[in-house]
Structures are given as C-alpha cells and as structure tokens.
Design a protein around this nucleic acid. Structure first.
Length: 513
RNA sequence: GGGCCUGUAGCUCAGUCGGUAGAGCAGGCGGCUCUUAACCGCAAGGUCCAGGGUUCGAAUCCCUGCAGGCCCGCCA
C-alpha cells in the first residue's frame, strides 16, 4: 500500500494482529543483552559453518531488512556497536513461531532475539535464533536501505532518522562525545576545575556579537543570553579559584552557515599566575591529545594527517609582520582609520563608515593572512584596539599579549594575557563604545558591552592570568574533518515549516532591523 | 543581505521539444531451507513544494512565495 499513510496503516495492522494474538508489541525491556560487537568478537576465528555450541546469547537492535528464503530467513540487526544478522530456520523456531515473526515484522522495527552464535557457510557471523520478539513496532518505514536518507533538510529536521539509518552519522556524534569527554579529562589532569556560570544576564559581554533577548518574569527585566563565558570566569579568579574552565552553550543572534551556528558550544579557561605563553603550550598539549582521540574515528590516511598536523610545536607568526608581509603594505597597522576602512572595502569586506580602526584591521587581516593558515599556526600579539580584554604587551608598544590558533583557514582558539588593571579595563571598554552620534540599537549590541560589575571585581585585584576561548564545534570540525558545523551539531536550528510558526513574545523584543 | 542551484511515490532518483507520470528500494499477494542491495512472478501506489499567469493543453515556460544547499559578505 503505497502512500505514506497506507504504509503506516499496514504496520498498525500487523501490530494489532500481534496484540490480538496476546503478544505485547511494546514490551518493557530486554534484559541480559549482549552487544553485537561482543558477539562478533566471540565468533572471531570460528570457521564457516561452525557455532558456539552450548552458548546462548540475547541480542537486540533495529531490523535493517528481511531476506527470506521460504523456510529460512536472514534478519540483519543493528545496535549502537554494530550489525549482526539473525539466522532464522523453521527447524529452530517451529512453523507457527517462524510464520508469525515473518508476518508481523518490518524493516525499522526494534527486535530482540535469543540464540546460538554461529558463522554461516558463507562466513557471515550470525545468531541462529531460537526465539525472536518484537521490542517496538516502527510505524514509519525507514529510508531506502542502500542510499539512506539523502535529503539534507530531512537529515537536520529529523536527525533521529538520520541517526537510525546512518551508522556513519551515529559514529560522528559518538566521536563528538568522546572528544568533549577527553577535553574535560585533559583539563582536569592539568588542575583545572569545571564550573557553571549563568546563561542569562543583564549585559552580554566578553565578545563582539548581537545577543538574544529574553524576559525574566520574576525579576521583571529584559535579560540577554550570554555571547561568551569570559567575564564570570574571571570574577572567579578574583574570588580565589586559580584554574577554572567552562564548557557551555553561548548564543549569538547572527547568521547560520557552514561554520557558524547562532547557538554553539564554547570552552573557556582561566589560569591564575600564568600568561599567554603558558596557555599556548597548554593549547598545544590539548590539541595534540584530542587529535589522537579523534584518530580512531577517521580513515587511516586522515588519522595520520591529523596526528601529524597536531604534533607540537606549532609555528608562530607575528600579527603585524605577517600582515605587512602578506599585504605588501609597509606600516599598514599605523594607517589612519579612514584608510584602513577603505582598504577593508577593497578586500571585499562589508564595512560601515563608523567602523573602528581595530575592526577594519581585523577585516584586512582576515583577507590577507587568516585564509592562508593551513597547518596549526599561532598568530601573536594583536594591535591593542582589536582586543579590549587583553593586557598590553610587555615589550611591543601598541599591542596586546594575545594569540589566535588557526587551522585550515579557520580560527580554533583565542587567548590573552588577561587584562587585570581595572582603570585600563574601564578605559578600554569606553573606547569600544560607539560615539553617541551613531548610537543605534544595532551598533550598540555589537560593541563589547560595558560590564560595570566586572570592572568593580577587578578593583578588588585579579591575579595575573592567562585565558583561552575555543569554539568547541569548530575544533571538532577540524579534528573530525567535517565541512559543515551542522554535521557536528545534533539538532541545528532550522526555519519553521510554512504555516507552522509559533508566535513568540520575545521576537518583538529583538533588535529591529 | 547578494548570486547560483534544488524541491516529482514512504525513501533514492529519471522525466526529451509543452501533449496528460516512470524506475529501483520499501509495502501487498504468491514461490523459494545459507542470504549479503538475496532472487523469481503478479498486482497496486502521485497535492509533480505552494499560489498565480501564459497556453487548446504545464512536472516542463513566466511571476511571486516557502524550504533547503552552495558561493560571497560576517560574528567563533
């Protein structure tokens, strides 16, 4: 029965037939299960046609397809660890049970079985089933067994279908988990303590971005979702914690594309009594370690390339030297603001007239230098006006102690010797604020918001410290070779389907365009 | 935000010059005791993304919209 509803109805009928026969189509569990990979392991070295006589194993998973040959049938199942086929014979199950199983199951159903691990005459590891039970009826047919789910939109909107039909997708998100777990373990081994700080706040500072707005009913105030983790973590250094980190979602109300998602995961750490050089060596250790953990999830060639790329030390280049060398323009950094804005425009960047010197410089740098940084490379010592939260350089006037790590043309991390002079911090925040003449809501949101309480915290004294921020999704893209951030995020944001929009009270509070 | 591309059966895809809709998989019925996208036979299955226009006639041409992808710009 060919339409989608008819296919669903056909499966409902099978389910109801089972129910009428006294079989529960959604039972409560399936205890004492052995993972597919373990059964395969047990069968290693078993000759074709042989079986583990006397051994009984229970396996469960999603039914991939049914290959029936009259009185025998092969039912490949998949669980999280892998695939294994059931071998069904009338001789093992009896006529009635055999017929009932084949008449009521469909590809996509969750199925459990008990039987003897064996290897078929054709050499395929299998379980010769002595009983088969339905564990959950699937009412929807799974995607085509050979091509899988190709529709990129469906894969994002219904990630569960992508996952259940693609072992590769499942594996990629296992890799994500393994890498984030390793990041926590590694930082813990270096003495860092994981903390959690608020997502909702009155000011969204620590980064340059449009915040999401929301309303806090109890406090009767508009709040913003954080755009960075930096300022609360530094307050903790003031309080006396010496090595802290946080891994959490941050929110920037901007475009979604191949390497940006409005909601993404950030890792930031702050390290008292250290500086950005210490942080640089920590980043080398961390990324080297993560590349090794990523390796088993990659093809042999890719794994070797990744481990080779992330073998420290990584080259360092000076921001100004690199920029002048790549652009061929001497003293580019010292050009007046207007000239820089014009230059940024020539580089193809979107510019607006009031754009700051630092912002224009960043565009020019991105054009001439960043795109060319293929191997992991640290760019050191940015001009002071690009970076309001970093400490002035100890020996290079007009610069701050800051580095960014680039790989394959994208930024993976950003670190400073943290600014801890409260008066300098206050002044640097104020320089970032747009001149009053053009204080539109738009530009105001884009400046590093002035966080008065943070400056107050610094007045109590923050130890000298090094700090780091890494975009976790991008780091994972780099490690796993993903070309889109959507391949790394389980449920990326999608537009509402037509006629399916939910009216939102917060949308009217968003920045007007 | 600008440019290009895509949207046809549950899934993967064809569809010529504008002439009234095709295949494979999945599903139904029948056959088959070692398959690997099993195989063989039979029958069935459509809001051609939505709306409008041109035309005797539109999946096909035009316009608008919706959704997605890629490139560019941009925040990580």
């Amino acid at each position: 029965m060919p339409t989608g509803e008819e296919l669903t109805e056909e499966r409902r009928l099978k389910r109801d037939r089972l129910k009428q026969g006294g079989t529960e189509p959604y039972p409560y569990g399936f205890p004492d299960r052995t993972p597919m990979a373990s059964v395969r392991q047990e069968l290693q070295g078993q000759a074709p046609g042989g079986e583990l006589s006397g051994v009984v194993r229970r396996v469960a998973g999603r039914l991939l397809t049914v290959r029936q040959h009259g009185k025998t049938a092969f039912l490949p199942l998949r669980d999280q660890t892998g695939e294994l086929q059931l071998f069904l014979r009338v001789d093992d199950l009896g006529e009635d049970a055999y017929r009932q199983v084949l008449e009521t199951i469909d590809p996509g159903d969750l199925v459990g079985a008990e039987g003897v691990p064996m290897v078929t005459r054709r050499g395929e590891p299998s379980v010769r089933a002595t009983s088969v039970v339905l564990l959950a009826k699937s009412l929807r047919p799974p995607p085509e067994k050979w091509h899988g789910l190709q529709d990129t939109e469906a894969r994002l909107r219904q990630r569960y279908v992508d996952l259940l039909s693609s072992a590769e997708t499942l594996r990629r998100f296992e890799a994500r988990s393994a890498l984030v777990t390793e990041m926590r373990r590694y930082l813990g081994s270096q003495g860092f303590m994981e903390v959690e700080t608020p997502v909702l706040g009155r000011v969204a500072s620590g980064g340059l971005a449009h915040p999401f707005l929301t309303h806090y009913r109890f406090l009767e105030e508009d709040f913003r979702l954080r755009v960075a983790l930096e300022l609360p973590l530094k307050r903790l250094l003031v309080g006396g914690f010496e090595r802290v980190f946080e891994i959490g979602k941050v929110f920037r109300n901007e475009d979604l594309d191949a390497d940006h998602s409005p909601e993404f995961t950030m890792m930031e750490l702050y390290w008292a009594y250290a500086d950005y050089t210490d942080v640089r060596h920590l980043v080398e250790g961390l990324t080297e370690d993560l590349a090794k953990v990523a390796a088993p999830f990659l093809s042999k060639e890719e794994a070797e390339a990744r481990v080779r790329d992330f073998t420290p030390p990584y080259p360092t280049i000076d921001y100004v030297e690199a920029l002048e060398k790549e652009s061929g323009i001497p003293d580019l950094v010292d050009l007046p603001r207007e000239r820089l804005v014009a230059l940024a425009r020539e580089c193809g960047a979107k510019v607006h007239e009031g754009m700051s010197h630092g912002a224009a410089l960043d565009k020019v740098f991105g054009h001439y230098v960043e795109a060319k940084l293929d191997r992991p490379t640290f760019v050191l010592d940015y001009p002071v006006e690009t970076t309001p939260l970093a400490k002035r350089h100890r020996s290079k006037p007009g610069r701050v102690e800051r580095f960014e790590l680039f790989y394959k043309g994208i930024e993976l991390g950003n670190a400073y010797s943290e600014l801890n002079d409260p008066d300098d911090q206050e002044a640097r925040f104020r320089e970032q604020l747009p001149p009053p003449s053009r204080t539109g809501a738009h530009e105001e949101e884009e400046a590093y918001a002035y966080d008065e309480d943070f400056v107050e915290a610094l007045r109590y004294g923050m130890p000298p410290a090094g700090g780091l921020g890494m975009g976790v999704d991008r780091l994972l893209m780099a490690m796993l070779g993903a070309s889109s951030i959507k391949d790394i995020i389980l449920f990326p944001p999608t537009r509402a389907k037509a006629g399916n929009t939910t009216p939102s009270p917060a949308s009217s509070a968003g920045p007007s365009k």
